[in-house]
């Protein structure tokens, strides 16, 4: 396949960036999107040029590192898919593909397609923990948890912190991510002691970090590679309201 890439190049957060165009005459349709970048980078390095910086780690759809905004959509044209799991057979011979970094003031650009997502870490640090007694490990089944609740909590915990929700949201809002982190604990008995404090703290830090406000467009749910549901946003809104009224 012949693929033309228009890739965002930017030295660092302080210098302005621009698009560079690269033509790859012989892309295999079995390559993943990232493998295509490996090939391109290999070529750039041989030519003595600066390779394109992009994040990646597991390359099996579970770590959330591979942030790329491809042809106007987070992680490209497929739903429920990270960039590393996107294969070139979903494109056509002769396509021009525009690749940009996640764009949000809370995700400053480090270089090229790489952004700093540590704002997510700070949100989690603000409340994503529970109190446990130190000493012997508690027996796994000593606290009964209804299967349905466990399933819902598990669904929330599937969030891999990739930031596609922020990237795709027209408001650069992090509500889907934060609500997943709030929900996975709010749904379990172990999460109850800090339930109110947690939601308030995490929302506070989310706002401080400069994420936008949710207007319920629902784009995050569609683009999330892990299918995190808007149910969690509603639960977080509910918990936030209740905790502000009660405390």
């Amino acid at each position: 396949m012949k693929i033309t890439l228009k890739v965002w190049r930017q030295q660092n957060g302080k210098t302005p960036g621009n698009f560079n165009t690269y033509t790859l005459p012989d892309v295999s349709e079995d390559m993943s999107f990232l493998e295509m970048f490996d090939v391109l980078n290999d070529e750039l390095i041989r030519k003595g040029e600066d390779p394109i910086a992009f994040d990646h780690d597991c390359r099996e759809g579970i770590c959330g590192m591979c942030s790329m905004y491809i042809n106007g959509r987070a992680h490209g044209p497929l739903t429920g898919t990270t960039t590393c799991q996107l294969h070139m057979r979903h494109f056509n011979d002769g396509d021009t593909i525009v690749v940009e970094p996640w764009r949000a003031s809370a995700f400053p650009i480090i270089k090229d397609l790489m952004v700093d997502r540590s704002a997510f870490d700070r949100v989690i640090q603000a409340g994503g923990f529970i109190s446990v007694n130190t000493g012997n490990a508690v027996d796994a089944n000593s606290i009964p948890i209804p299967k349905e609740d466990a399933d819902k909590a598990f669904d929330a915990a599937a969030c891999i912190g990739c930031g596609a929700c922020v990237a795709t949201c027209k408001n650069a809002s992090a509500m889907l991510f934060v609500s997943a982190k709030v929900s996975q604990l709010a749904l379990l008995p172990q999460g109850q002691p800090e339930r109110h404090l947690r939601v308030k703290k995490m929302v506070e830090v989310m706002d401080e970090e400069g994420f936008g406000n949710c207007t319920n467009t629902g784009a995050c749910e569609v683009e999330c590679p892990k299918g995190i549901s808007l149910d969690h946003i509603a639960r977080m809104n509910r918990d936030y309201l209740v905790s502000n009224i009660v405390d």
């Binding site: 042809n71 106007g72 525009v98 940009e100 027209k170 467009t217 784009a219």
Partner: peptide, 10 residues
């Protein structure tokens, strides 16, 4: 973004 396609998501 230079290219945005939100027609499929919202």
């Amino acid at each position: 973004y230079a290219k945005v396609d939100q027609s499929k998501s919202s």
